[in-house]
Amino acid sequence: MSIMLNAENVWFRYSQEGDWALKDISLQVEKGEFVAVLGSNGCGKSTLAKLFNAILLPEKGDIIVEGINTKEEEKLLDIRQKVGMVFQNPDNQIVATVVEEDVAFALENMGVPPREIRTRIDEAMQSAGIYKHREKGPHQLSGGQKQRVAIAGIIAMRPDCIVLDEPTAMLDPYGREAVINTVKKLNKEYGITVVLITHYMTEAAQADRIVVMTKGKIEKMGTPKEIFSQVEYMQSLALDVPQTSALAYEINKHGFNLSTEAISIDECAAQLYKFLEE
């Protein structure tokens, strides 16, 4: 497996004398991986996202995107094409007044010939599941649909990696589910590397690997099972665990011995069933 994103001892701060927003971050994301970044507010996870496609540049250390250092200014557009970004507020990332023209925005900027734009945006809109809304205005769509328009606008660029900065924070549960399913599909079917920054543990639980950040540092890395089974530790960082792990943890407090590694509802139910049978 080759490495998609590589952060090497990255230090970053917003002003010269200010506090460090990121302290000595080293993180490798492999091609095709689905990584979730967890952390409480102000832990630097959004800052890290912006470093990955050269919106911000590290003060010390390097970010390497498929062999390109983000500090190479002449490669800026290549980097942005390789690493697409989706932000929290869907309203503030839609430029055009019609869905399909917004999806085409990146391709227009890249100077893709009009015919090819057409085929690529149709593909992108279909994989994001918004093809039937292509002629609507953004104000006619729900939050979840708008966020999928933003995702379509990114996948039309055919990036190798998508960084999503709390894409579901402003959505209702249905919109949230639709967006996460789209992201999972992009990862599984198209092999696009995904870095998902989120507050929701159920979303993080679906990733291949979880990175936990606090105060500008990486606290822990591991599979969702490894991370969420440490209920007390997560709580000490003011982070939740999925309700399934929390349930097992609470039951264990009363002297039982359930595994907190059962994250999905099915797994948890199966475990409880087995437990009750015994």
Binding site: K50, L77, G84, M85, F87, N92, V95, N109, I154, M157
Partner: peptide, 13 residues
């Protein structure tokens, strides 16, 4: 400000 960042992310130059 957010829109400007989002536009930059989509290669606007």
């Amino acid at each position: 400000e957010e829109l400007a960042t989002a536009m930059e992310c989509r290669c606007y130059h």
